[in-house]
Amino acid sequence: MRRYLRLYLYFLRFSFSRALEYRMDFWFRIVMDTTFYAVELLFFTVLYQHTKLLGGWTLDQVFIFVSGYLVIDAIHMTVFSNNMWWLSIFVNKGDLDYYLVRPVSSLFFLSTRDFAANSFVNLLMAGGILAWSLIRYPGTLGSTNITWFLFLVLNGAFLYYILHMCFIIPVFWTHTSRGMVMAFFAVGKMMERPDQIFRGWLRRVLVTVLPLSVVVSLPARVLFEGPTPEKIVHILGVTACAFLFMAWFWRLALRSYSSASS
């Protein structure tokens, strides 16, 4: 475990020096993400011009929900996203061999080796927006609720990564990642909407098999409605199952990779 931590520190150091090298990209990313944050908040602001509630939430509640999503997105962009991008390229070009011969967990190595230091500032910004939305909230939010919420947001970031991986891994068989990556972005839109607007079977799917609503929506419900044991168990349980599924899927993919390549 200590070894992995040290390894990760190396990844961090490399990526910081690389990111600062490309300074234009550094600034552009800040501009891009600021715009993204503004677009997300504006979208809901415009919608709430025409309704008081959406998915059972007021605008103030939706702001917290959205900024929770922004934090998760920022964590994903900083920690995982570049690696996901590279993974499909590695698989297609057969460059994976180089990573498989290392005496460390290939999943760990390939998921974390490229830390996007240039998104780091955005992580701070998203955190700031979340703090702002919590402070400006007119009602009262208990500190237990807030603590649970923040913890579950981190859990949500991890779940986001797992879901993304599950959409990337098929590249081992299909060899074209484009379609699946686009599919993830389309499906991912459901994360950005309150879970209650989805009804019936779709909602049931979104909180279980394809747990997109578990990423931010359910944590936000914990914040507003209190951390009942069944909610907490549900969220953590779904995450654990998703993780086990991904780990199994990964091993399956590696086996097919090593048997297919010459």
């Binding site: 910081f16 020096s17 600062l20 090298e21 300074r23 550094f26 600034w27």
Partner: peptide
């Protein structure tokens, strides 16, 4: 060095 990198931004 990190500080000179940041300055270079």
């Amino acid at each position: 060095g990190l500080t000179s990198s940041i300055r270079a931004l």
